[in-house]
Write a protein that binds this DNA or RNA. Structure first.
Lengths: 205, 205
DNA sequence: GTCTATAGCACGATAGAC
DNA sequence: GTCTATCGTGCTATAGAC
């Protein structure tokens, strides 16, 4: 659903990309308008033509990453056949989440690093975007459990927190080249679905 | 192994605790010496009696959290009987890691949030402490696999990254009161060991 | 749409009194 | 061991030329 940018929006996107990289590396307070401008090939005063304050700029960075994740996940899940199993849906969700995080790596890392440090009003506003994303994950897990594909006694809230913690951290360590995104996603899915232990190899309580 | 502090070290610890909270909330650059001093009940100039620069202060915050984790893990693993299974060792490691993270919550959150933003020299120095901690986890996993307790085809590097990502994120969402630390640790361990899926319920490739 | 220049303020760190 | 006072620097944001 990415549509071509109007000419007037191109330099705005260049400013946003630069801001994501600088916020990622220096944090919210440490990222200065001068350095962001330099990264975008501009002078500091010129930034204020595109964004009227530093807070508006960080808000835009936070929202872009989250919106990309929501959109990619909706598209990927909608493309699945109706008869897809819970395992298949979870695998697609893993793959889509990791792929989005890596594709928007500057934004993902900027978000996870500065989220706890931005002014509270900005964080509250951004949280409204996050909540529906968490609900999509919750829905995948509960549906699979209701269908009898997942253990009836599995704690799905803990499962969701484990999954999102593990997946979001990939932004910090994944380096393209050695392992592919699909390898990571399916390796993670295998562990979360089937576990590390040899089946039937001991007591599980 | 926590020994009583010398009188002269008490105010130093008070400064360090204050710094952890302020770095956690405002990031590396956003945490000012004036605000840290106020949190510690001092004036800005007085901080420099205890730490000779802001960089020395953030280094101390980073190192304290990591050293606490290493020490707690060594103690917990050493207390296990020699015949402990891989499952038991992994459960103890989960519980110890989460407990340490929550007990030192200010330091844990400060570390995970500012780590990517401190000057490179500080990060490189601190990384030397982190590496042996990762090795302890690697050892637990590979031993269990060699003994035949874990699947022979499990990717243990991915397993370690999944586990540490999930466990470290607990610092962001865990709130004492509703769920206990042990519930979280054993719930996570159950998923990682046995998986979410009903055993024998479908193809796993 | 980008520039230069600068107002007004806060920063890290130091000096020296007590 | 903590204070006050201050130096030199760098910050966000604005004004107005081009």
């Amino acid at each position: 659903m990415t549509k071509p940018l109007a000419k007037s929006a191109i330099s705005q996107k260049r400013v946003l990309d630069a801001a994501a990289r600088i916020f990622r590396d220096y944090g919210y307070a440490g990222a200065t308008m001068r350095v962001i401008a330099e990264e975008a090939g501009l002078k500091a005063g010129s930034l204020y033509y595109h964004y009227k304050s530093k807070d508006e700029l960080i808000s835009a960075v936070l929202d872009l990453g989250m919106n990309a994740a929501i959109e990619a996940m909706q598209t990927a899940l909608a493309a699945l056949p109706a008869e897809a199993t819970g395992r298949q849906r979870l695998e697609v969700a893993f793959r889509t989440h990791v792929a989005t995080i890596i594709a928007n790596g500057d934004y993902s890392l900027a978000t996870s690093r500065v989220y706890g440090q931005v002014p509270e009003a900005i964080r509250i506003q951004h949280q409204k975007l996050r909540d529906p994303y968490g609900l999509m994950w919750r829905e995948i897990l509960t549906t699979a459990q209701k269908r009898g594909e997942f253990r009836a006694d599995a704690n799905l809230t803990l499962a969701r927190l484990l999954i999102l913690g593990a997946l979001n951290w990939t932004a910090e360590w994944f380096k393209p080249g050695s392992r592919s995104i699909d390898d990571v996603a399916s390796g993670f899915a295998a562990i979360v679905m089937d576990g590390l232990a040899v089946p039937g190899g001991g007591s599980s309580g």
